[in-house]
Amino acid sequence: MFDIDWWSLALPFGYIFVLGSSLYVFSTIYRKRKAAESANLAPWFPPHLQKEIYSTLLELDADKDRKTKVPEGVIRAALLRRAVEDIARIIQVRQAKQALNTLLQRGSVGEDLNQRFQRAEKEIEEELKDVVMEANALAPGWGQTIFQSANEIAANTVLRSRIDNIQNKAAAEKEWWEKRRETIQNDFMKELEEEPVKGSAKVSSDDDAVLVDSSTPITTPSKKKKGKK
């Protein structure tokens, strides 16, 4: 029979044990870290304020202790606002997608950015389904049109804010022009007074050019002033 010399085998067994346990420790730690990393990935979008408002309103409505019920109109409006924000997010995701893919192919951005993006994409998909379901629950058939309405609301809001920005400049522009016109008028009067004093032919001919130019805007507004009064 073989007589196993356990003591001489201790070394190889010990080697295998150390190898195996170190691999195990490495893999568990590595996996844990990876999981923690992906859990801690910054979200693509900031918190969904509109969604929180909508959920809070539903909670308020469900709360039976309170006497004031949340009117349905408010809840509908809140859902519509939520849909509008979703539209903005979808547009953002779609625009980012192409750029991100190109960057990924070139290797200019890291994998974690891609993971964040894919999570955002999934979230927005779920969010859309959720909104459609909620809309159908509030009013039958609304789910089909709520995003059309939300789309127009988003576009209209942008348009109005741009036009408002332009129109808000009107007062300042007007003020600037009034001042400017006065200075032009004063310069014009001064030049008229100085005119006979100046003798040099060349300079006065240049001044003539000034007069012709500045007189067109000056004389006409003064006419208008008279006309208004």
């Binding site: 509109q50 408002i53 509908r76 809140a78 009013a139 309405s149």
Partner: peptide, 26 residues
């Protein structure tokens, strides 16, 4: 700001003459 927008939207929804009061398609 968001609540102001929400209340504005609510007011314009209230002016709708259809029943139920949901914004019609564009």
């Amino acid at each position: 700001a968001e609540l102001a927008a929400l209340n504005n939207l609510h007011r314009s929804i209230l002016t709708l003459e259809v029943s139920p009061q949901i914004p019609p398609p564009p």
